[in-house]
């Protein structure tokens, strides 16, 4: 089955990231890189999204499309990237997610 792991950042995580020194930051990125290498045989696709301040939302449910600045839900938690994995079942997807070394929330959803 294919699943998408959606990586969700919190405000607190963003603050921690900002407070990091150069060395710490490099180590954090290395950990993420290592995670991708470790699970490379299961990961079919992945992407990191640009920060949330770059987001634009368009609503198509009115007479005219409405374009607004920002993500579709204003919240303290925002999706910052995703990885698509191909595994046998949910438990295997959860196992991969468990070792994710960066942002503190991961949403796991099967592809239909």
């Amino acid at each position: 089955m294919k699943y998408v792991l959606m990586f969700v950042e919190t405000e607190q995580f963003a603050r921690q990231l900002e407070a990091m020194g150069e060395l710490e930051l490099r180590q954090a990125y290395e950990a993420v890189g290592q995670w991708f290498t470790e699970h490379a045989d299961k990961i079919t696709h992945h992407a990191h999204l640009a920060p949330v301040h770059t987001a634009t939302t368009m609503r198509l449910d009115g007479a005219e499309p409405v374009i607004t600045d920002g993500p579709f839900v204003e919240g303290k938690e925002v999706v910052s990237g995703f990885a698509e994995v191909e595994v046998a079942d949910l438990d295997e997807a959860l196992k991969i997610a468990r070792s994710w070394p960066a942002c503190p929330i991961v949403e796991i959803r099967p592809l239909s």
Partner: peptide, 14 residues
């Protein structure tokens, strides 16, 4: 069914 919750005994670590 749709989320692929398995029908098995979890691994030792889980």
């Amino acid at each position: 069914g749709e989320a692929g919750i398995p029908y098995r005994i979890p691994s030792d670590e889980e």
